[in-house]
Design a protein around this nucleic acid. Structure first.
Lengths: 356, 356
DNA sequence: CTGAAAGCGCTTACAG
DNA sequence: CTGAAAGCGCTTACAG
C-alpha cells in the first residue's frame, strides 16, 4: 500500500486529478456539491498532500525561517517562541536554524532556506558583514530578509534592535549613583553591539568624571552557552578582584555570562549585592528565582518579534515591487528591572566610597 | 534573473542535465575530469539545488523530526539540543515541532511530517493513546517512530525513558530518612508518567510506615511553561502550609513547577531548606545559581538522545524489513544531585520530628 | 462546471 | 563515459 495521490482519488471518484486539486484548494471553479463530496472522501481516507510536489509546482513553501546564533540563549529563545506564537495565527510555518556564531554554518543555513523555497527570513547575523553577498542575492531573487538584534550588519533592509549605548549608559549611571564607581563591563567577544555598549559605558563614566579603565572591560569569547568558559571567566574576574582596587559592580551583557558570573562570585565568596552589585542583560525568565534575584536589563522581546513579523509580512505582500521600500532601522526601548542584586544596601558603601 | 537549474548549467557546459546531476551526486558513471569541471562551475555560480524537486523525485528529504510538548521546558530543550548536536555529525537535518500538549496540534505536526517526506520521528506524545491510528499508519507506510520520555504510549516501537517510580521512590525515601515525612508530590496533570511517579511515592511512604495523604499529591494542569498557573499553585501550596500539619518537604516533577514553587515559597517566607526541603525533577542547567541551589533528579538526557538516534538510524538502515524488529523499551537511570535545598541542616529537625 | 495536458526541477533506469 | 526520456505529485492556464 502506497501513499494515496490526487490521481488515485480521482480514479476512485471518477473525476480528474485537476478537479480534486481545485476542490481541495477551494477553487471557485468547482461546484459546491462536488467540493463537499470530495472533501468528505479525502477526510475519510485522511489524504495527506505531498508538499514537495506542491512546492515544486508553485515555487512556494508557506514557510519562514528564523536564524539565530544559538537557541540556548534565553533572549534568542524567547524571541523564537514569540515569533512561533505570532505565526501560529497565520498560515506560515516556521523553521529554526542555528549558526553557532560560525559564518560557514550561517551560509549553510541560508542555502538551506534557498533550497527549501523559504519565503522569508528573520536573522541575527554572525558578524557585520557575514554572508553579505548571499544575503543580497536572497533579498534580490528569493525572499525578504529582516535583521534583528545584531543590527550593525551591512545588508540594506529593515532592522529591529535596541539602543545598546543608551541602556548601558543608564545602567552604568545607576550604579555610579548608587556609589559603585569601579564597574566591570562583561561582554561576549566579537559581537556587533559591543562598540555601542562600550560607548554607553564610557560616556556614563565620563559624565560622572570617573576615569575609564581598560582592564574593567572583560571580553570573553564563546560561540555557545555550552562552551566551557568558566575557568577563563573565573581567572579574569578573580584577577580584578585581587587587584589593589577591586571592582564593586558588574554589568553583564548576556544571560549566559550573568549566570556563570553569579556562580563564580558565589564560589569566590563575594557577597551580592554587598560586595558586588550585579546587573544582567536581557530578560532571564527566572531572574526572580536566582540567588540573589537578579536586576536585569529587560529587552522588549515580544515587541521586537511583533515588529519583525509585521515588517516581513509587509515585504511579502509587496514582493513584486522590491525596490520601493524605504528601509528603516527600529530601535526599541529597554528598561531596567530592579531586584536584589543591586539592592540599596549599598547606600552605606556609597558614603564610604565617596570619601576615598 | 531566475534561479539557475541543472538544465541551464547543462546548456552552459554543453552537457545534459542528467550528467550534471550525476556529477553533483558524485556518481561513478561520470569521469573525474568532467566531475571536477562541473563542480568548479557550479561552485563558481553558487548553484543551489531545489530540494522540492529532489524530494519529489526521490521520495526522501534527509530530514528527521523531533516532536515535543513544548520546547520551553528545560528537559525537552536539552534533549532537542543533544539530538541536534548528534545529528550534526550525520547528513540528516532536523526539524522541531511542538504540540503544546494538544492532540490536535500533535496530529497536525505528524501530518506535516508525512507531507514533508520526513524520514524518521522522535516523539514525546501528548497522551497514552494520542494520534495512535496516525502513528501506526506512519510506522507502517512512511517512516520509523521512536517514543521517548512519555513511554506509556501504546504505539509498538522502540521507547526510551526513565523508571519514574524508582527514582521518585528514592527521592521520597531520602527525604523521609532526612526526617521529612510530610511530603508534597507536585505533578503536571495528565502526564503519562504520573501513575508510575505516584506509585514510587506511595511505595516509599508505605515502606517507612507513613500514611499516604491524598491531599499531598498536588496536580497542576498546564500545557506550557508560560501558562499562568502561579495563582493556582500558590493557593494550593498555601492551603497545605496553613493546615494543622504543614508539609516540610516538596518533590516537584517538572522544572517549570520547581521554579514557580521556589518563587512562591520565597513569597510566603518559607525558609528553604529549614522549613521545607525541595527536590526538583530533571536537570535545570542553572540549578546551581538558584536561591537556594536546588537539589535535582537529573535525567540522563544526553544518553537518552544518543539511544534515540541510534535506534532511529538502526530502523532506517533496515527500513525494508519493518516487521523484523523486536521492539524494546529502554529505561535509563537517573541520579539525585544534592544541593542546598535539601541541606542536612534538617538533621536537627530529624530528631525533633521523630519524637512527635 | 469539469477535464486534458503541460510543466515545476530534479533523478535514474536504460540505451548507446 | 554521456545523453534522452520518463516520471515523481502536484497546479493551473486553457479548452470545451
Amino acid at each position: 500500500m502506497k501513499r494515496v495521490t490526487l490521481k488515485e482519488i480521482g480514479k476512485q471518484l471518477n473525476l480528474s486529478p485537476g478537479t480534486i486539486s481545485k476542490a481541495l484548494n477551494d477553487s471557485h471553479e468547482i461546484g459546491e456539491e462536488t467540493k463537499k463530496m470530495i472533501l468528505a472522501y479525502t477526510q475519510q481516507i485522511n489524504y495527506i498532500p505531498n508538499f514537495s510536489a506542491k512546492s515544486l509546482k508553485t515555487g512556494r513553501s508557506n514557510t519562514l525561517a528564523i536564524i539565530v546564533p544559538f537557541i540556548s540563549s534565553s533572549f534568542f529563545f524567547d524571541f523564537y517562541e514569540d515569533i512561533s506564537l505570532i505565526l501560529a495565527e497565520t498560515n506560515y510555518k516556521l523553521i529554526l536554524l542555528q549558526t553557532f556564531n560560525d559564518e560557514k554554518k550561517e551560509k549553510e543555513a541560508l542555502e538551506l532556506c534557498v533550497q527549501s523555497n523559504i519565503e522569508g527570513i528573520i536573522i541575527s547575523p554572525v558578524k557585520n558583514d557575514s554572508s553579505l553577498p548571499l544575503l543580497k542575492y536572497i533579498m534580490d531573487q528569493i525572499c525578504p530578509v529582516i535583521i534583528f538584534d545584531r543590527i550593525s550588519h551591512q545588508l540594506e533592509t529593515f532592522k529591529i534592535g535596541i539602543q545598546n549605548n543608551r541602556i548601558i549608559y543608564q545602567a552604568t549611571a545607576e550604579m555610579i549613583k548608587g556609589g559603585r564607581e569601579n564597574i566591570i563591563l562583561l561582554l561576549c567577544k566579537d559581537i556587533g553591539g559591543n562598540t555601542s555598549r562600550i560607548k554607553g559605558y564610557k560616556d556614563a563614566l565620563f559624565n560622572f568624571s570617573i576615569p575609564f579603565k581598560q582592564e574593567n572591560v572583560v571580553e570573553i569569547s564563546y560561540s555557545s552557552p555550552k562552551d566551557d568558559i568558566d575557568a577563563e571567566l573565573e581567572s579574569k574576574i578573580g584577577a580584578l578582584l585581587n587587584s589593589a582596587t577591586p571592582p564593586n559592580a558588574l554589568l553583564s551583557s548576556t544571560d549566559t555570562l550573568s549566570l556563570k558570573v553569579l556562580h563564580i562570585l558565589h564560589k569566590l565568596e563575594i557577597r551580592i549585592p554587598e560586595d558586588m552589585n550585579l546587573i544582567g542583560f536581557s530578560n532571564t525568565p527566572f531572574a526572580n528565582s536566582l540567588n540573589p534575584s537578579l536586576t536585569t536589563i529587560a529587552q522588549p522581546t515580544r515587541l521586537m518579534a511583533e515588529k519583525s513579523v509585521e515588517l516581513l509580512l509587509h515585504m511579502l505582500k509587496k514582493r513584486n515591487k522590491k525596490n520601493y521600500f524605504e528601509f528603516e532601522t527600529y530601535f526599541l526601548d529597554c528598561r531596567i528591572e530592579h531586584r536584589k542584586s543591586t539592592s540599596s544596601v549599598s547606600a552605606k558603601n556609597e558614603t564610604s566610597k565617596r570619601t576615598i
